[in-house]
């Protein structure tokens, strides 16, 4: 493995970093280790190191926490290591999927939204149907009782709902 700082020399030293349980590894050649000030383990946690922009190569190890496959491994093999890789690499997947599929999300999400909409529409519809039936019953009863004035009001209401 090459040094992750200069990319030229063979890495001979490995440093570990543990931030809130998030373990990261750093492989360096001895020259870089020295020039970066990693002469002892404790230096890794020095504030100077963590704040410095020079060390942002530390930020993205991009390794799947289940199978330890890296995104670089994917670029080499064209395959992911395990189902969890999809979660581990999700930041990089939208652009990848856009290239491969022209879309970024599974269709069921869209479908679910669609069905939800259809369901609410349907339930609105059935509410409407119920009300209509109710009014028609009432109309029938009023006509039977010969209450024509009231019946006319109900009839107009029915017309209004049916017209919608």
């Amino acid at each position: 493995m090459k040094c992750e700082n200069c990319g030229v020399n063979e890495a001979t030293v490995r440093y570990y970093q543990n931030i809130n349980g998030d373990k990261k590894q750093l492989h360096l050649c001895s020259d870089c280790a020295e020039s970066l000030g990693f002469t002892s383990f404790s230096n890794i946690f020095s504030p100077m190191f963590l704040d410095s922009k020079n060390y942002d190569f530390l930020e993205e190890p991009q390794v799947c926490n289940v199978c330890h496959y890296s995104f670089d491994d994917y670029l080499k093999t064209g395959l992911f290591g395990c189902p969890n890789c999809y979660e581990s690499f999700q930041d990089r997947l939208d652009s990848l999927f856009l290239k491969l599929h022209g879309k970024t999300r599974h269709v069921e999400l869209e479908k679910e939204n669609k069905t939800k909409k259809e369901v609410t529409e349907k339930s609105n519809l059935s509410k409407k149907d119920n009300k209509l039936d109710e009014l028609k019953e009432k109309l029938k009863a009023l006509i039977e009782e010969e209450k024509y004035e009231e019946a006319a009001v109900i009839r107009d209401k029915i017309k209004e709902i049916e017209g919608k």
């Binding site: 992911f80 997947l93 269709v107």
Partner: peptide
């Protein structure tokens, strides 16, 4: 939910 069936090759 996001990606559907997960496959070895994306």
């Amino acid at each position: 939910k996001k990606y559907g069936y997960l496959t070895s090759c994306p």
